[in-house]
């Protein structure tokens, strides 16, 4: 295995494009190292992105959004007051990945590129309308996070392409988001179901909403019907029931060692309701 530590994303993309065998990018490494050690993925070239300047930065963009470096670990997201104030749901999704130790390494970009339908940070990013900046041999492009995963373990990135930043839109006023997942234990599990809700209020009424579900289909789902169920409401009981029904109806899960399809469908509605309640309260000014 060849280990590379390029100092620009362009160099990283060049190395990846020229590589013949199995190639992996190394950011936090919490998935790549597990695959490497178990022998499931034995890269010929491993490209460490953490020596590239700026990869550890969290910066406010000109329009008031946020640009997050690809090596920023979950612990650093959680320690960033501005980001936590604007996008608590995105941050809490990332902070649910693994243990305190894993939080010291694991990154949004890595969690996204691993391509797991159960990735905890992805529904929050999708609900937030986040995009990624991709650097490839042909230059850079931007892609909504929702379009990055295309199947279990598969992404829309082409050979030689690498995510070079995560970009969150401006939060704006009277808005809130939240992410909840269901796991059998209290920590250290892969989501059986994950639900993220981002919404904006006009007075007490929900003016805009985005609802994303994880672990209930081959890729993360952005469920328009679930959002529609609560837009125009004050999240009263009937809106909540409609949200739960829409969320459950959107699920297309499998039975696996982590949970049954029936359970996932049922609990997706529950998680969506509970996340919506938190997001709503946050939009009304409750602290995260």
């Amino acid at each position: 295995m060849r280990y590379h530590s390029p100092s620009t994303f362009e160099d990283a993309a060049r190395i990846a494009a020229a590589a013949q065998g199995v190639t992996r990018f190394l950011a936090g490494g919490t998935d790549v190292l597990v695959q490497l050690r178990s022998g499931h993925v034995l890269p010929d070239d491993l490209i460490d992105l953490k020596k590239i300047p700026g990869t550890y930065d969290i910066a406010q963009t000109e329009d008031g959004g946020w640009r997050i470096g690809i090596a920023v670990p979950g612990a650093a997201l959680g320690a960033h007051a501005g980001l936590c104030k604007d996008w608590p749901g995105v941050v809490e999704g990332m902070e649910l990945v693994g243990s305190t130790q894993v939080q010291g390494r694991a990154t949004l970009a890595g969690n996204l590129c691993n391509g797991s339908p159960a990735a905890d940070s992805v529904p929050g990013l999708v609900a937030a309308g986040a995009t990624v900046e991709i650097t490839g041999p042909e230059g850079t492009r931007s892609l909504p996070v929702a379009e990055v995963p295309v199947g279990p373990g598969k992404t829309a990135l082409t050979a030689g392409e690498v995510i070079s930043a995560i970009v969150l839109p401006p939060r704006g006023d009277k808005a809130g988001d939240a992410y909840l997942r269901f796991i059998p234990r209290t920590e250290m599990d892969i989501a059986v179901v994950g639900a993220a809700v981002s919404l904006r209020l006009d007075g007490d009424t929900i003016a805009e909403a985005r609802v994303a579900l994880g672990a209930v289909a081959p890729t993360v789902l952005l469920v328009a019907e679930a959002a529609e169920a609560i837009v125009g409401t004050t999240l009263d009981d009937s809106a909540m029931d409609a949200l739960a029904a829409a969320a459950s109806a959107a699920c297309n899960p499998i039975d696996d060692k982590r949970g049954t399809a029936a359970f996932r469908i049922e609990v997706a509605g529950v998680m969506a309701k509970r996340a919506a309640r938190i997001a709503y309260d946050r939009a009304k000014g409750a602290s995260a």
């Binding site: 190394l26 490494g29 597990v34 460490d48 670990p73 130790q101 894993v102 010291g104 390494r105």
Partner: peptide
């Protein structure tokens, strides 16, 4: 930063 040393490469 607290990490698992099994998830960090020596290099």
């Amino acid at each position: 930063t607290l990490v698992c040393s099994c998830l960090v490469l020596g290099v």
